[in-house]
Design a protein around this nucleic acid. Sequence first.
DNA 1: TGTTAAATTGTAATGAGTATAAATTGGAAA
DNA 2: TTTCCAATTTATACTCATTACAATTTAACA
Lengths: 133, 133
Amino acid sequence: MEILKQNQLKITPQRLAVMKYLDENRTHPTADRIYTDLKEKNPSLSKTTVYNSLDTLQNHNIIQSITISPSELRYDFKKSMHHHFLCKRCGDIIDIELECPNIKKTIDQGHKVEEVHGYFKGICKKCMEKQEK
Amino acid sequence: MEILKQNQLKITPQRLAVMKYLDENRTHPTADRIYTDLKEKNPSLSKTTVYNSLDTLQNHNIIQSITISPSELRYDFKKSMHHHFLCKRCGDIIDIELECPNIKKTIDQGHKVEEVHGYFKGICKKCMEKQEK
DNA sequence: TGTTAAATTGTAATGAGTATAAATTGGAAA
DNA sequence: TTTCCAATTTATACTCATTACAATTTAACA
């Protein structure tokens, strides 16, 4: 964990807590969810600090933000390229592992591609099965 | 224009104005931009009406909302499947025409896919050329 | 250990979008 | 055409995620 911090960033308990949380909760949580959960063990935690930490980590490409649902950002450890599936019923976000062969087309048009986001929306497997019962 | 309205929706000048605006401005505008621009010719227009109209049109699959930039929705006429490119420099959103061969994979995992959104972010061609000068 | 720039905190502000209730209006029926 | 009512518009107030700011604290280097 602290190894990751050797990216010219100060090692603070707050940042470690945020990283630990994201590592243990692969649910693409919102900033507020992170704040609320961490607040329990660390009552002096400020919401601004969570936002600051997330911003900093994102700027150093350690985590990424996901703009899949309107009005709130979701956060995620940066992993190999993958897409996301948002269930309209339960709100869960599921990782979809696949590579996108279409990036080349965009580059060919003269744009410089820095980020690729693929979002699917619908009803997830779990909810579909629940419905059938 | 009015032909589209034969979707069980009342024909109001406000809705027509919003549709006309989206038809003439293929720039994926925000609700606020639409409101501000339409307000000039129609001072009695309410911001709520713009949101209502956009919601209604979206529910009838005439337009779609794009969740590409955090904290604001962008609106677009519903066309054939295409992806979007957001320029981090000028903020423009550009349509990328392509088909995504990866949807099948998600369906195969048992999820029901209702919407597909592909977002690329980077620097657009125009800004890249400006930079080189 | 002392110093300082960087980070944290708490509070206040911003701004997109929503809720609500009263006033208006489209459009079908008389 | 006129009447009528449900749908729509309007204005205002509100919510809530995120940001701004200023004062306090702290990590990490000498």
